[in-house]
Simulated assay, not measured.
Amino acid sequence: MSKNNRIAMIVMILIGVAIFGVEMRHLDFHQVWHTLNHMQLQWLVVAFLVMVSSWIVESFVVKIFVQHDGEHLNFKAALRVPLVEQLFNNITPFASGGQPAQLVALMQAGVEGGRASSVLLMKFVVYQFMVLINFVLTILIGFNRVATHFGALAWLIVFGLVIHVVVIIGLLLVMYQYRFTKRLVGIAVRVCGWFIGHERLLRWQEHMDAKIDTFYAESLHLKQEKFKVLRAAGLTLIQLLLYYSVPYFVLLSFGLGRVDLVTVMVSHVMIVMIVSLFPIPGGTGGAELSFKTLFASFVATPSQLVLAMLLWRLLTYYLGIAFGIIALAVPVKRLDHSQQAKNL
């Protein structure tokens, strides 16, 4: 990890500590102690296992895409990819560091650079489609409830959905309308050229053309690997459902048995959507505020709400940072080029 990344990680942890310090100072200590003493810790264990299981499922998605012509990525190397992704997603704006970190992790495991890029591209496309499906279902099921709590801010969720739809449309255009997409992007870049210098315009045009060409070439693999893509899509859906269910088990640990799993998962999807719109790593600040706003109706006391927010954040954010650091330190076993790929 670079010095800048270490500094970013420390800063985000300190900001998180400060946020929870501010929240805790308004609480009655005796009420907090009483809440802690009556927690059902077995549900916290379940929440921890569910979060870890989501990374394990994602590692099998990596294994599926890497497996090709007898190449077989061992489980430990595959699991290292989502853990490293978690670390760098959580300490970089807009989670921009996750993709390069995964690429390095795969190359360290012996996957050739071009092949690793192809794997990550297919993984990204599948993930975006599954996220979009979840967001659409969530808005159909629970937007009215969120709008009641958030008011005008709820339209950020719609804006986030529009962004994801635009991304998917762009991917599909490259896959099925390659020449049209290049012309469309060329027009957009020329329009941007009205406001930037000629040299920068040429760099942008070259960069965008290279990205489109790369994605189109890799999209041909997607079309040829339909069964592999379907398997990965099914696992990605499971991965997302596991992640979205984490706050449900956190709430159960406080004895809140009346909470509904679907409602909690819908609320969590909405939080993820809102947080993804902000450039702050991990959506720090916005994530905590969104959690308090959406889950206040489930929780009886302020101490339960703040502690639930703390535990949720520890499991879904800081745990990923901790496991990612461990994954960086673990030696990598190189790719197994066996004569016959093992079945997953």
Rank of each mutant, 00 (worst) to 15 (best):
A116H: 01
N144H: 15
P93V: 10
Q108R: 15
L106Y: 01
N90P: 03
R179L: 08
E112H: 09
G70S: 06
Q99I: 01
R179K: 14
A105C: 04
Q102C: 04
Q128N: 14
R80V: 01
L103F: 02
L140K: 15
T92H: 06
L173G: 14
G186T: 13
N90Y: 12
P100Y: 03
R179F: 08
I91F: 08
L120R: 00
A101M: 03
L103K: 01
M107W: 03
G142I: 07
A95H: 14
L140P: 06
A109I: 03
N90L: 14
G151H: 13
F159D: 00
L184C: 15
S117P: 02
V146E: 01
L79W: 02
F129K: 13
L132N: 05
A188N: 05
I139M: 07
H72V: 14
E71C: 10
F94D: 00
N74D: 13
T92I: 06
F129S: 11
V158A: 10
N74F: 10
T92L: 05
I141G: 07
V146Y: 03
G110C: 06
G142A: 06
A78G: 11
Q67I: 00
V84A: 07
T181G: 10
A109L: 05
S118Q: 04
D69Q: 14
I163A: 08
F75G: 01
N90F: 12
L121C: 03
R179D: 03
R183I: 13
E112D: 08
E85G: 06
L171E: 07
Q67Y: 00
S118L: 04
L153I: 09
M122K: 13
V119A: 01
L137H: 10
R145S: 13
T148V: 05
I133Q: 06
A105S: 08
V119C: 01
G160Y: 11
K182W: 05
K182D: 04
T138W: 02
Q99F: 02
F150Q: 07
H72W: 15
Q108D: 13
R145I: 12
E85F: 10
L140N: 12
I133W: 05
H164Q: 07
I133F: 12
M130Y: 11
I91C: 08
L173Q: 15
A116L: 00
L106W: 00
L153C: 06
I139N: 01
Y176D: 11
G142V: 07
A147Y: 04
V84I: 10
A105F: 03
K182A: 05
P93D: 03
L137Q: 09
S118R: 02
F135G: 10
V166C: 15
I157T: 08
I163F: 10
S118F: 01
I157A: 11
G110P: 00
Q177Y: 01
V174I: 13
Q86F: 11
R80M: 04
G97S: 05
L103E: 01
A147E: 00
N144K: 15
Q102W: 03
N144P: 09
L171V: 12
I141A: 13
A188Y: 09
M122W: 13
A78T: 07
S96Q: 10
R80A: 02
T148P: 00
T92K: 09
M175T: 10
Y178E: 06
P82Y: 04
F143G: 00
